[in-house]
Write a protein that binds this DNA or RNA. Structure first.
Length: 564
DNA sequence: GCCGTTTTCGGCCCGACTGTTTTCAGTCG
């Protein structure tokens, strides 16, 4: 029997750990960055790791040289490496955790461990309350207060994971549950996952058992809740396990007003059980339009479902093209050719490249000469696509500068097919200045789409302070589409604001913000988020077909040139 | 630590902000 080996993602995670621990040990930035680069390239390498190693081709992966290749082989085979073990002896794992707190980088985290042996959030919090952080050299009262604020944010988010991890966790748990209990016919993930929530709490599963008691009882835990049900009660069990609590409570109230009782066992009138096996049958028996799981948030959906006026929620298959993606021209990992081809293979009709603009120096933002080179390359690729139903659109993710200016001259802006304008800096501006900045940016006639409009990073960073209503209003007035950034870290614009954006006359655009070909699959999270917002295909810019979007871009550009 | 060479070592991702200092280190995007 062969030894168990680690797959590429696990090895990449360990390379990242080596890099981060080297940072703590104040190794050369170039040295630890080499580990991050190698990890990233290993992750996106198309050939399985075991095969690359067997063929002796590790060093053909960019960023992998002699030293890192040796480490990859050992990590793959044994799960560890003497260098990693040595680094682990220098700092406990908790010190790495400290670096999640904004304002605590490797130097400061290492300093706190060195002088006060702080290696956990609890110890950090205690030290803050005792005033010991403010007193530390290089720290101060402001930083101490900021750390306490971040610790409160972390506490609030304990046990929550982002949508992609939530789904992975729920589906893995489903499989494990089925394997352990042969009497289970099938398992359906419910709870936050089924409602498409942007962050998910404990795993909720519904297991269908028609032959209860034939094997060990199914156990739940605080992180992992299982409802077992015979298939004739599946609908009710699913409704209760899916939630939300507010939705279920209102639904039960509504049932009562109709003289019925809704329980996890089903719907009944007095002592008579009503024949409702599925969710659809239950909603129908309650005289309601079927309410999709994503809409079950207790935000008036039951009242609306009584009226029969109901949205035709967008589906993944409604998307016709992909906009806002990065390539190796800036900070992406795949070439324009690879990204476009992967998009075409997903059945899409167009690909809008949007690398970073020149001010985003940290992300390899494009000086205009490089933009021209990319345009020439896109033109060449488009000649290859001539006669097919596929096209590359030349876009840019333009940084929004301090007062809302875009990052190129008007003449240069006019050379793009479309422009996504996004904030990547100056998050601390006050509300008035930030609002004016964003309104100014979307008032620029060259702006086509407002990118990740609040700058939030789920479970990591709060949105910046801005009067979003004023910004959305300006987007509506100027015909600028508002992005639903489909990256699971962002999912920004928040679904709670989708209807408001639509009321104000905005189009939406579901954009993956992909930095490699795998990132194109982010679209499914964006669609889930849009469904939660009650969005229909007709509201979404990239549900336009190739001819439609081409016309849209051309019309806007013509208007922009006219305004000059 | 990797890469690409002028093939054996120099360059690699940089500019701005923040809070700490009292001229700048550390962090961030």
């Amino acid at each position: 029997m062969s030894e168990p080996t680690l797959p590429a993602p696990a090895v990449a995670a360990l390379l990242n750990e080596i890099g981060r621990r080297m940072e703590l040990c104040e190794e050369s930035p170039f040295k630890f960055r080499a580990y991050f680069t190698a990890a990233e390239n290993l992750l996106t390498h198309p050939v399985p790791l075991a095969q690359v190693i067997a063929q002796g081709k590790l060093k053909s992966i960019s960023g992998v040289g002699e030293a890192i290749a040796e480490k990859i082989i050992k990590l793959h085979k044994t799960g560890t490496h003497p260098t990693l073990e040595y680094l682990r002896e220098q700092h406990p794992a908790g010190v790495l955790e400290l670096m999640r707190i904004p304002g605590l980088g490797p130097k400061k985290a290492a300093a706190l461990y060195q002088s006060q042996k702080i290696a956990s959030f609890a110890e950090l919090e205690a030290a803050c309350h005792a005033g010991k952080i403010a007193a530390e050299k290089g720290f101060g009262a402001k930083l101490q207060a900021k750390i306490l604020e971040s610790l409160a944010f972390e506490k609030k988010n304990v046990g929550l994971v982002k949508i992609d991890a939530g789904h992975a966790r729920a589906f893995a748990a489903s499989t494990a549950l089925k394997d352990r209990h042969p009497s289970i016919k099938s398992v359906i993930p419910a709870g936050d996952v089924r409602r498409g929530c942007e962050v998910c709490g404990p795993v909720e599963l519904v297991a269908i058992i028609d032959d209860e008691g034939s094997d060990a009882p199914v156990e739940s835990s605080p992180e992992f809740r299982v409802t077992t049900t015979p298939s004739q009660h599946l609908g009710a069990a699913l409704i209760f396990a899916t939630g939300s609590a507010a939705h279920v409570s209102s639904l039960c109230d509504w049932a009562k007003t109709l003289g019925m009782d809704l329980t996890p066992e089903g719907l009944c009138r007095g002592n008579d059980a009503l024949p409702c096996e599925t969710e659809a049958e239950i909603y129908a028996a309650l005289n309601l339009h079927f309410i999709e799981p994503e809409l079950r948030e207790g935000r008036g959906e039951i009242e609306r479902a009584k009226t029969g006026v109901w949205p035709q929620l967008i589906e993944l298959k409604d998307l016709r093209g992909i906009l806002h993606c990065h390539t190796v021209f800036s900070d992406g990992s795949n070439t324009l050719d690879e990204m476009a081809e992967a998009t075409r293979k997903l059945g899409q009709e167009y690909f809008g490249v949007c690398d970073h603009s020149q001010s985003a120096a940290y992300a390899g933002g494009l000086r205009y000469e490089k933009v021209c080179a990319q345009h020439a390359h896109a033109d060449e690729l488009n000649r290859g696509y001539a006669g097919t139903r596929f096209k590359i659109f030349k876009g840019i993710e333009s940084d929004i500068l301090e007062h809302g200016e875009l990052d190129y001259t008007d003449e240069q802006l006019a050379s793009f097919d479309f422009i996504v304008a996004s904030v990547h800096s100056r998050f601390q501006l006050d509300r008035k200045a930030q609002t004016a900045r964003l309104v100014n940016a979307v008032s620029n006639p060259f702006t086509t789409i407002l990118g990740h409009s609040t700058g939030r990073l789920l479970l990591q960073r709060e949105p910046y302070d801005v009067d979003l209503d004023a910004v959305l209003k300006a987007c509506g007035e100027h015909g600028v589409a508002v992005e639903i950034n489909a990256d699971p870290h962002r999912l920004d614009l928040d679904w709670r604001l989708h209807q408001r954006a639509l009321e104000l006359g905005c189009m939406l655009a579901i954009n993956p913000d992909a930095h490699d070909t795998t990132g194109l699959l982010n679209q499914k999270w964006g669609v889930l988020c849009a469904r939660k917002g009650g969005v229909e295909a007709k509201h979404v810019l990239n549900c336009l077909d190739l001819a439609g979007i081409e016309k849209h871009f051309e019309r806007r550009k013509k208007a922009a040139l006219k305004q000059q």
